[in-house]
Computed example of a mutant assay.
Amino acid sequence: MRVILDTDMGMGVPGTEIDDGFALALIAADDEFELDMVTTVNGNIDVESGTYLSRELLQRLGREEVPVFRGASAPLAEPERGRVAPGAIRERFGHHRPNPGYAAAEIARCVVESPGEITIIAIGPLTNIAAAINLDERVASSVKEIVIMGGAFQQHTNLLHMPGEFNFWVDAVAARAVMRSGAPLRLVGLDATLKVRLTREHAAAMSASGRSFGAFAGESTTAWIDAMAAKMPGDPAHADSCAMHDPLAVAAVSHPELLEWAPACVDVIASDEAGRGIAVADLLMHADSPAPNAHIAVDVDVDGFMTYFLNRISNY
């Protein structure tokens, strides 16, 4: 399976998001995937830092040959929401340079040159994906599928400052554009991803695996759980575990049977700050329902996913 991973990589700096890194590691650890490229985008971290860290992680995984293309540094229509310069991360990882070129252009080129062959796994804000579709109208019809970690379809974030799921909230205009593009979409949102969690016990087992990546993975997991527990003391779920949002999107490609899917017509609120990034999903229950534009994950085989994930990561 030929895939492009579009990511806002943070793994590699203690106390930063780790699930993007685990998604990349899962692709590397599963022989079913052929990774054509990694593209980076502003989101959990500024795009420059995310690019350095993607290169660093590929080296750690023994996959230095995979090209990395730097992408958007700010949301599609809001350059003022861009992040600050990476500072210390540049000093530590700045030797990891991206390949020449721009992420959106490289995505468009790859997809159009190989119609029906490329699956895009988008696990950050959708800025690069929307830009690629805008660059060449053939992208939407040529891509095999776009699998997106994003959205909440049967629940709410319960956060006034971030009403939509993070990836949709960061660039709501891009998320709406992708939903309306006509591309084949599968959406893996919080309804499923919050159910698959990596615990401190899992971290200890990875650290004890005797594999070099396992030790790094265990340390990164413990540091991230500690950071989230301190940041969200009112949520007991964060005391001892963290959600594997992005690896579940990867599993949706290699093992779609691990998730329960429902057709839906999905749009995204982009113009109202109070509702920014909220995904509105019509589950097609009425006779006059609109045509579906996506399949959304409504449930997940938690044990099946965790077995697949831990076996691959611990033995890599």
Results as ranks from 00 to 15, higher is better:
residue 191 D to N: 07
residue 140 A to Y: 11
residue 166 F to C: 07
residue 253 V to K: 05
residue 212 S to A: 09
residue 228 M to S: 01
residue 164 G to W: 03
residue 176 R to S: 09
residue 167 N to D: 08
residue 186 R to N: 11
residue 162 M to H: 07
residue 137 E to C: 10
residue 143 V to W: 14
residue 142 S to H: 14
residue 214 G to V: 00
residue 154 Q to W: 03
residue 243 A to V: 00
residue 247 P to N: 08
residue 201 E to S: 12
residue 206 M to L: 11
residue 197 R to W: 00
residue 171 D to V: 11
residue 233 P to W: 07
residue 212 S to M: 03
residue 136 D to H: 13
residue 248 L to T: 14
residue 250 V to D: 00
residue 141 S to G: 15
residue 226 D to T: 00
residue 176 R to H: 15
residue 172 A to C: 11
residue 247 P to A: 10
residue 160 L to W: 14
residue 159 L to M: 13
residue 239 A to K: 10
residue 140 A to E: 14
residue 201 E to V: 02
residue 144 K to F: 02
residue 222 T to L: 14
residue 216 F to L: 04
residue 182 G to Q: 12
residue 197 R to L: 00
residue 178 V to Y: 04
residue 192 A to F: 01
residue 239 A to W: 06
residue 235 D to K: 02
residue 189 G to T: 08
residue 249 A to Y: 05
residue 238 H to P: 03
residue 221 T to R: 00
residue 213 F to E: 05
residue 235 D to P: 02
residue 215 A to S: 14
residue 238 H to Y: 10
residue 214 G to H: 12
residue 205 A to W: 05
residue 167 N to I: 00
residue 168 F to E: 09
residue 248 L to E: 06
residue 246 D to R: 12
residue 202 H to N: 11
residue 172 A to I: 10
residue 207 S to Q: 04
residue 138 R to H: 12
residue 219 E to S: 10
residue 175 A to R: 15
residue 256 P to I: 08
residue 136 D to M: 15
residue 215 A to F: 03
residue 210 G to I: 05
residue 204 A to Q: 12
residue 231 K to W: 00
residue 165 E to H: 14
residue 140 A to C: 12
residue 189 G to E: 01
residue 216 F to W: 04
residue 255 H to Y: 05
residue 213 F to R: 02
residue 173 V to R: 00
residue 209 S to H: 06
residue 148 I to L: 01
residue 169 W to F: 15
residue 165 E to A: 03
residue 256 P to S: 09
residue 251 A to L: 09
residue 186 R to Q: 12
residue 254 S to F: 09
residue 164 G to H: 07
residue 164 G to P: 09
residue 170 V to S: 02
residue 223 A to W: 01
residue 245 H to I: 07
residue 223 A to L: 03
residue 174 A to L: 14
residue 230 A to V: 13
residue 159 L to C: 11
residue 218 G to A: 06
residue 184 P to W: 11
residue 184 P to H: 06
residue 261 W to C: 15
residue 163 P to Q: 07
residue 221 T to A: 00
residue 171 D to F: 09
residue 165 E to W: 15
residue 177 A to T: 05
residue 181 S to D: 03
residue 185 L to Y: 10
residue 193 T to R: 01
residue 186 R to Y: 01
residue 165 E to F: 15
residue 159 L to G: 06
residue 230 A to G: 04
residue 192 A to E: 04
residue 234 G to R: 02
residue 181 S to F: 03
residue 193 T to V: 12
residue 257 E to C: 05
residue 202 H to G: 07
residue 225 I to T: 04
residue 213 F to S: 01
residue 150 G to S: 02
residue 180 R to C: 09
residue 192 A to Y: 00
residue 193 T to H: 02
residue 255 H to C: 11
residue 151 G to S: 08
residue 226 D to A: 09
residue 176 R to C: 06
residue 249 A to V: 03
residue 211 R to T: 15
residue 248 L to A: 04
residue 213 F to W: 04
residue 190 L to R: 14
residue 156 H to Q: 13
residue 182 G to C: 04
residue 251 A to V: 01
residue 244 M to G: 10
residue 187 L to T: 05
residue 158 N to T: 07
residue 152 A to P: 10
residue 185 L to H: 06
residue 201 E to I: 02
residue 188 V to E: 00
residue 175 A to P: 15
residue 205 A to K: 13
residue 228 M to E: 06
residue 147 V to M: 14
residue 192 A to V: 15
residue 213 F to K: 01
residue 210 G to R: 13
residue 220 S to R: 14
residue 136 D to E: 09
residue 146 I to E: 03
residue 200 R to K: 14
